[in-house]
């Protein structure tokens, strides 16, 4: 293994026919991260994940997992990976336990005790001998996680893990992710189209739209937990922006609809207001804006819907 990066994606690109589905994305996932891969439907999340797991070959770019290239050194790269791609699939005519046995047979070190252990972890021991065909979606999702845990992975990929679940099921899955990340030291890479899922479970996030990475960073940073945004309604926008450009707690200044939009450290807006007034700048209104990422993401998803 080289370095501390569990996953390293470089310049990954894929098109299906004329359709550029993933467009030169790059990011790194560090050990211990719960990394959110956020984007609206059709953004290219599943395709990216399939490339990262060696299921789809990229047109360009590389993926390394635990320091091994997925294309050149597949067997090593994949050996400590657990994954659920899209909704978890099973052989419906086999029992839960037999379904896990199918995967256990692909690893020399996984025995039937391990199967019992993971079934117990997801609370399915009692129903494990029933055919999966009669399982509920929530049970399948849990069995999927049990299957992903079979080979003691150090990184788990989940593709829209709460899709289709009721609120209680969603809560359970998210709690399970947090618990596994903390107690078992497992790194997670989670794709989702739900911003609040990222907020609740992830420490890092990368946002994908139409195959392109729009932004990435820590959730705190991007969700504006450290900074906030205010809109200044003023006729003196030019003068105001000159005043603000060298102020330490002001992070960015952009022209707005009727004045300026300012990003600044949390809790400093009263100072901003006093500063502007002391420079004889007319401030009609000082309006708090929604968290930037959220608004950004809403615009993004609505844009997606309009196109679809």
């Amino acid at each position: 293994m080289s370095g501390k990066h569990v996953i390293e994606v470089k310049e990954l690109r894929k098109s299906f026919g004329q359709n550029q589905v993933v467009d030169r994305i790059s990011f790194k996932v560090e050990s211990g991260d719960v990394f959110g891969f956020l984007g609206p439907n059709g953004a290219g999340k599943t395709t990216s994940m399939r490339m990262m797991l060696g299921l789809v070959s990229p047109d360009e770019g590389t993926v390394a997992i635990n320091g091994y290239d997925i294309g050149k050194n597949f067997l090593k790269a994949i050996s400590r990976v657990g994954a659920i791609v899209e909704t978890p699939k099973f052989y419906p005519y086999l029992s839960g336990r037999q379904n896990l046995q199918q995967i256990a047979n692909l690893h020399s070190q996984v025995n039937s005790m391990k199967i019992d252990e993971v079934l117990d972890m997801v609370g399915l021991s009692a129903r494990s001998d029933e055919k999966v065909g009669i399982y509920s979606l929530g049970m399948k999702q849990r069995l999927g996680i049990a299957r992903a845990l079979l080979n003691d992975p150090n990184v788990i990929f989940l593709d829209e893990p709460t899709n289709g679940l009721d609120p209680q099921g969603m809560k359970e899955i998210r709690e399970m992710i947090c618990q596994l990340a903390m107690e078992k030291d497992i790194t997670f890479f989670i794709s989702t189209h739900l911003l609040h899922e990222v907020e609740q479970t992830c420490n890092k996030v990368a946002i994908l739209n139409k195959g392109k990475l729009i932004t990435q960073g820590t959730v705190n940073e991007l969700l504006g937990k450290e900074n906030e945004h205010v809109e200044i309604r003023t006729p003196d926008a030019y003068k105001a922006s000159n005043v603000l450009k060298d102020i330490g707690y002001v992070k960015s200044v952009k022209p707005g609809d009727d004045g300026l939009e300012v990003e600044l450290e949390k809790g400093r807006s009263w100072e901003l207001n006093r500063l502007l007034v002391s420079h004889n700048i007319i401030v009609h209104y000082l309006l708090p804006k929604n968290q930037s990422l959220e608004q950004f993401f809403i615009e993004l998803t609505e844009g997606g819907k309009r196109i679809a």
């Binding site: 797991l53 060696g54 299921l55 597949f74 067997l75 090593k76 994949i78 050996s79 990976v81 994954a83 791609v85 899209e86 699939k89 099973f90 052989y91 199918q102 995967i103 692909l106 690893h107 299957r147 080979n151």
Partner: peptide, 14 residues
């Protein structure tokens, strides 16, 4: 087509 091949192919077998 049922997504079952994916299951085996994300494990260390050729």
């Amino acid at each position: 087509a049922n997504g079952l091949l994916t299951l085996s192919l994300i494990h260390p077998i050729s």
